[in-house]
Amino acid sequence: MATYIVSTEKLDFTYLDGTKALDSLSIKIPEGKKVAFIGNNGAGKTTLLLHFNGINRPDGGEVRYNGQKMDYSSKGIKELRKKVGIVFQDTDSQLFSGSVYQDVSFGPMNLGWPEGKIRIKLEQVMKEAGIWELRDKPPHLLSYGQKKRVAIAGVLAMEPELIILDEPTAALDPVCTSQVMSLLNTLNTNGATIIVSSHNMDEVYAWADFVFVLKEGKVIAEGSPINVFRRQDVLAAASLKNPLVLELYDKLVSSGMLAKQEDVPATPEALIALLATGKL
């Protein structure tokens, strides 16, 4: 039986202004997977993600971490936030310090690690994120893509077992996007569970192991990307579009240019490779 790192049970959350952001939402997030949340703006993605490290607390229902009901005492929250890292959408709100190095050091310092261990970890994650050269710079002299990578490094430095990224590639250029996604793959290979929210269907389709579709605070579909993206009713209801690769593949098959495959290609590269070998 698969184990679930985070799960929610009939989760309700209403903002102070009366907006019902989450409506009796129940999900189970499998451990060690790459999980994506998709849904139109205002579907409740960010609100939900903020429940996973106790920033938001449920008005009704409950959130479980590793099967245990979340403990909202200050000690419980502290333990939780050691394990769950969140990279926020707005990087300017995440970077508070005058230099990149200091900013990334903030999390590990709060964990109370010895200085030597922190310095080694900082160098390692900053190199992984490709920002080691920028370590002495202040955030306002960085580009958006660089700031994003600093924000990610600041979370990775804490060695979380669950890493949550709220729209990590929104407004990033293609090169930066692929750097970030491959970094996430490496982290996942090393054992971390990754959760992202995204509006980029191509990216989600190619990258995720498991997808949740949110609409008006409810889950309207979940499953492997191919199963979710095959459900046109769900995509229409959530105002989402088909991934390009999938759409193109379907067209090629229906027009008889390509044989129907057991494994539907997930990436443009896979589709191109198929075109070379799988012709009718």
Binding site: L50, N53, I55, K78, R81, K82, V84, G85, I86, F88, D90, S93, Q94, F96, S97, S99, Y101, Q102, D103, S105, F106, G107, P108, M109, N110, L111, E115, I118, R119, L122, R135, D136, G154, V155, M158
Partner: peptide, 21 residues
């Protein structure tokens, strides 16, 4: 938003950071 992100990284009322050497 910044307060939320600081909390997520274990903020407990003190902004402890490490300077370069």
């Amino acid at each position: 938003a910044m307060y939320n992100s600081l909390l997520s990284r274990g903020y407990e009322g003190e902004l402890k950071v490490l300077s370069p050497e």
